[in-house]
Amino acid sequence: MKKFILGLFTCSIILTNFSCSKDDPIAEVDQEEVGGATLVFTPVQAIDQDGQVNYEDVEGAEEIKIVFDGATLLPPVGEHYHLEVGESYRVHLLATDFAGRPTEQTFVSRADQHQAFILGAPTGTLDYKYADVDANGNTVNVGVTGYLTVLEHADTFALRYVMRHLNPGVKEGIRAQDWNNEDYTKFTGDNDLDLKFEIHLTEDGHGH
């Protein structure tokens, strides 16, 4: 009997090496969340050269910056933005990670898993061209940088910029023309960013 109890006791001693109380927790900084995002609309001049459209900067052009931050990640309350019919804009995404560092290049460096969709505009009012270049100098369709051309007038509407984190192999089935595909959810994956803001497509500088 004593031997049995001794054996049980010995086992208990050995096993007490396993932790008997919880560790002090360490705060995790959520790296998977984008910390903040800014969309910058810069007016550019579209130049058609033998059917090939190039975009050049316009000196003194005034940028439109839409900042999404804070807990709600919504643009400033009550703001809406004007874009001119006939004008082209370079749309550039600035994103920051959990530590406030620029992170938009991670989308380009993983171009096989990312693509932005620009949604919500009335049919025929906008045109968009992807203009990202990866580290090897190749053009890739991601949407961190692109050119948006306003084709027709439209009253204020909510425009969405969705940066899609795509499942493996999905990107191969997406074309550049899908930039405004409202069925973008069929390109399965996750949203890294889903930015909504109100926009008004105006003619001859006539807004309100």
């Binding site: 396993f18 932790s19 008997c20 109380s21 919880k22 560790d23 002090d24 927790p25 360490i26 995790e28 900084v29 959520d30 790296q31 998977e32 959990f98």
Partner: peptide, 21 residues
């Protein structure tokens, strides 16, 4: 019964459940 639950740090995500005894 005695239980100890620990989340291993370094996942870069806030654990769904906390550490507990």
């Amino acid at each position: 019964m005695m239980q100890v639950n620990n989340n291993t740090p370094g996942t870069g995500t806030t654990p769904i459940i906390p550490n507990y005894d």
